[in-house]
């Protein structure tokens, strides 16, 4: 067993050394560009005029490559669905112990009551301001889900409304697609943000539909992450 283990790790080390040589040549021959390439320069020059967003990364994700983001959200939805499917068969009985059979402490419970509203507010702040500051729907959604995780840790026996989470998730996904189709009808194409006025550059309610779309993405991502966490939490202890 021991010799087998060492041969195995030796082979792994040799392979990784080869990969490391490849990485070394990549890193050694790398010089940072002095100029933006054509795609990036286009985004840098035209983001403000075409989308009205301050954050160029947000403009790329929500508007220029909006279809890819829709696909990404779909992948997340699929992940949440498959996790629920895989773990659904071994769900703890209702009111049963679940994985969190240890009661949480007073400190965690009180802390959760105080922190949860602030975490939720911060998540909403991050996804509403996605077009102005670093942040956006995915980050904000992850913050919302971290609040849900805190709640799950503080009250392990509590069962959340699956119905509420899946309703938030499906409604926000549906409205996201409808906004995309409205872009075809009212503006230049699928998920075009100019269905709403672009507004003042740098204001909270500006950049057309970007704050709306990012809010929907934030809710959807938050609901998906929460449902993944919940599926993992509700499993029965083996």
């Amino acid at each position: 067993m021991t010799t087998k283990f060492t041969t195995r790790s030796f082979v792994a080390l040799v392979l990784l050394a080869l990969l490391g040589v490849a990485f070394w040549t990549l890193a050694a021959g790398y010089t940072p560009d002095a100029e933006l390439n054509r795609t990036a320069a286009y985004y840098a020059e035209n983001t403000a005029r075409e989308t009205g967003a301050q954050n160029i990364v947000t403009a790329i994700i929500v508007t220029y490559r909006g279809l890819d983001t829709l696909g990404e959200v779909t992948v997340l939805f699929l992940t949440a669905a498959i996790v629920a499917l895989v773990l659904g068969q071994s769900k703890a009985p209702r009111g049963g112990s679940g994985s969190g059979f240890l009661p949480s402490g007073e400190l965690l419970q009180t802390g959760t009551k105080m922190l949860l509203p602030i975490i939720m507010l911060f998540g909403a702040y991050v996804f509403v301001n996605g077009h102005l500051t670093p942040g956006g729907g995915f980050q904000g959604g992850a913050i919302l889900a971290s609040g849900i995780l805190l709640l799950l840790l503080a009250e392990p026996k509590r069962r959340f409304g699956h119905a509420l989470i899946s309703r938030v998730e499906s409604v926000s996904g549906l409205v996201y697609v409808l906004i995309g189709i409205a872009g075809i009808v009212l503006a230049g194409g699928f998920l075009d943000n100019r269905i709403l006025p672009l507004g003042t550059f740098g204001a909270l309610l500006s950049a057309g539909a970007i704050p709306l779309i990012y809010t929907l993405i934030g809710l959807k991502v938050g609901a998906e992450f929460s449902s993944i966490l919940e599926s993992l939490e509700e499993t029965e202890d083996a």
Binding site: D33, L36, A41, Y43, A44, E45, T47, A48, I56, I60
Partner: peptide
């Protein structure tokens, strides 16, 4: 902006 910012595409 094109002369001041880094490449947004990798981000």
């Amino acid at each position: 902006a094109a002369a001041r910012v880094i490449d947004p595409v990798p981000q």
